[in-house]
């Protein structure tokens, strides 16, 4: 990939081939990326509305040592082992982030940064240790840092798609309760909703999404897929239900576009591409979105000032 060209005829040919679905693996990558983008956007929305937007960043970084430990213990990269390892260490990270500010002087923002960087260092140390070992099947472990959708196996993608669909289904089912809790926690408790259980469930869904996202988006940039779609979607509409739909569409589209790019340039990491696509959506929404976009607000301001309306 030394000489990457934007308009090379081969890129165009590959895009056409991609959309004819001649390659079954590419089709799986496409489905997986879109589902991941959608589920991450929706789960991330609640974190952003709880004013805890960067929690996904810490959870993703925390997953890294778990994946490495699981490999050291079981010497395999089968998707369920990876899922198990990543989930256990993400949950540990979640616990640490929650425990530090409650029991020590350390403030929440520092707790997040500490958890993120400590677990990431642990993961990298374990990864470098594994690379010095003489074991089989260790290649590709480093792909979870920046994600490489093209290198994923249909088996991984099936697990990913199933989890993502489950997450989307559960959120659809319990949307109203989470909206209530996010808006007015004390009130939710006062009418007898078991707030703690919903909290834990949402955290679990978040960890699940982060973990299945590792191989496509990667540890380092997972945060963006969780927080950018909803932030962009808030410029489009005042109502949460619609915002979640817009966020899911943005997340899904960015998954789709980055799957396409990943097919054209299989050696480049997928995560950064997906984040750049998302950044594009964010900038577009920031300026042109019909509800709170910059342009609309300027027009509104101008019309308020004009004497016609007085």
């Amino acid at each position: 990939m030394a000489d990457f060209e934007w308009v090379s005829p081969s890129a165009w040919m590959l895009t056409k081939a991609f959309w004819r679905f001649e390659d079954a693996n590419a089709l799986w990558v496409l489905i997986g990326s879109v589902l991941l983008g959608m589920s991450a956007s929706v789960v991330g929305s609640f974190a952003v509305l709880k004013r805890n937007a960067l929690i996904g960043d810490a959870l993703a970084h925390s997953a890294l040592p778990g994946v490495m430990m699981a490999f050291i213990l079981f010497e395999t990269q089968s998707p369920l082992v990876v899922l198990f390892g990543a989930m256990s260490s993400s949950l540990l990270g979640l616990f640490l982030m929650d425990w530090l500010p409650k029991n020590t002087k350390i403030k929440p923002d520092a707790a997040l940064a500490i958890t993120l960087s400590f677990f990431f260092a642990l993961g990298l140390m374990a990864l470098s240790y594994i690379q010095g070992l003489n074991v089989e099947g260790k290649s590709g472990l480093d792909k979870i840092l920046f994600g490489q959708a093209a290198a994923m196996l249909p088996e991984d993608l099936m697990v990913l798609s199933a989890v993502a669909m489950g997450v989307l289904l559960l959120i659809t089912l319990l949307f109203q309760k989470w909206r209530l809790i996010t808006f007015n926690r004390q009130y939710a408790r006062s009418i007898g909703i078991w707030v703690k259980a919903y909290d834990v469930l949402l955290a679990l869904l978040m960890v699940l999404v982060v973990v299945i996202g590792l191989q496509i988006v990667g540890v380092v940039l997972m945060a963006a897929v969780l927080l950018v779609p909803v932030s962009a979607a808030r410029f489009w509409h005042p109502q949460l239900a619609v915002i979640l739909w817009v966020a899911a569409i943005i997340g899904g589209l960015s998954g789709l576009i980055s799957a396409n790019i990943s097919y054209i340039a299989p050696a480049t990491p997928t995560g950064p591409w997906m984040v750049l696509v998302l950044a594009g959506f964010f900038i577009f929404s920031f300026i042109f979105a019909p509800y709170q976009g910059w342009l609309v607000r300027r027009i509104r301001q101008a019309s308020q000032r004009s004497p016609l309306h007085e």
Binding site: A53, L54, D57, V220, L221, A223, A224, L227, V228, S231, G271, P272, W273, V275, L276, L278, A279, F282
Partner: peptide
Amino acid sequence: GVVFTSFFA
């Protein structure tokens, strides 16, 4: 989150 992920990406 928006700024640093975009720049890093």
